[in-house]
């Protein structure tokens, strides 16, 4: 379960942001694995968005008379339920498709929340310095000193199970990671010649911040957010395993895998096999893309 906490972003030149995208696209086309990652991620997002159109059934609709059907190609299965059904007769494929929604919500909003919180707090600390910095850095270090999984599990056990709680939980507990990266970058950028120059000619601080510093944070933040998104999808599965994720009736991948694991050795392996594959594939895709993003936004890798 030890997931990518992306290493602190490598040192970056302060080259202007514009004109980079064309270059990025060219790079992307050259790296087939990254392209695969992008395809997987886009596919995953599309599935999550269009789940209601793609899913053959309502993921919550029970049919106790058609429960525990195996996948269609196995004996006893039917194409009515391509990946089979669970013990309440709910369609597994539909649940996995809708599960992508939960995972996307958790991963996307979790990472976004963490990113925004981290950005706000990190910029404050890095820019204001002094006691604000000391306080924030102290808190950040405190939260980062407790192994992430332990922190998440303990808090999850305390706050109770709901989708919002899980998103908040991931967002807040991951924010320190972003804050640390942002603070470091801000400190570094502030010392850079071009920023010092703009400050010297009397540009207001907020403007310096928004125009010159925040845009330069995009690279490392997007990279980190990408890794954290896949980490959160993964952690959701882990919480599900311990019975601490979203409520059991919500078809999240973590819940599917957790109830499915008992079925692994109880004659219904499909119930955990396919959710497991979905998680692994998505994590793989996002990580591939993240790797590439890191390399691509790191100028020294651009050769």
């Amino acid at each position: 379960m030890e997931q990518a906490i992306a290493p602190t972003a490598p040192i970056r030149q302060s080259s202007p942001v514009s004109g980079r995208s064309a270059h990025l696209l060219r790079l992307l086309r050259r790296d087939r694995l990254a392209l695969l990652g992008l395809v997987i991620l886009v596919g995953f997002v599309l599935i999550a968005i269009f789940a209601p159109l793609l899913a053959p059934h309502d993921p919550l609709a029970q049919n106790l008379r058609a429960s525990r059907l195996p996948p269609a190609w196995q004996e006893g299965g039917s194409w009515e339920h391509p990946l089979g059904t669970d013990r309440l007769g709910r369609d597994l494929l539909s649940r996995i498709l809708y599960g992508a929604r939960v995972s996307l919500l958790v991963g996307f909003f979790g990472a976004t929340l963490a990113c925004l919180l981290g950005l706000a707090v990190g910029v404050l600390a890095g820019y204001l310095g002094g006691w604000v910095d000391a306080l924030i850095s102290g808190l950040v270090n405190l939260l980062l000193s407790i192994p992430y999984l332990v922190l998440v599990i303990v808090v999850a056990a305390l706050v109770g199970r709901s989708l919002v709680n899980v998103i908040l939980l991931f967002g807040i507990t991951t924010a320190p990671l972003f804050a640390r990266v942002v603070r470091g970058e801000v400190l570094r950028l502030r010392a850079m010649a071009f920023v010092e120059a703009t400050v010297a000619i009397g540009t207001p601080p907020l403007r310096v911040l928004l125009r010159h510093i925040v845009p330069n944070l995009t690279g490392p933040l997007v990279t980190l957010a990408t890794f954290e998104m896949s980490a959160m999808i993964f952690y959701e599965a882990g919480l599900g395993f311990l019975g601490l994720s979203v409520p059991p009736n919500v078809p999240s991948w973590g819940n599917l895998l957790s109830t499915g694991r008992e079925s692994l050795m109880a004659g219904m392996p499909w119930l955990s096999l396919y959710p497991g594959l979905a998680i692994a594939l998505t994590a793989l895709g996002i990580n591939l893309l993240g790797d590439w993003l890191r390399d691509a936004t790191d100028p020294r890798m651009r050769r």
């Binding site: 056990a157 109770g160 199970r161 019975g243 601490l244 409520p247 059991p248 009736n249």
Partner: peptide, 10 residues
């Protein structure tokens, strides 16, 4: 819209 599921201790 749903059952309130609570960890057994709680």
């Amino acid at each position: 819209g749903e059952i309130e599921f609570l960890e057994s201790g709680v």
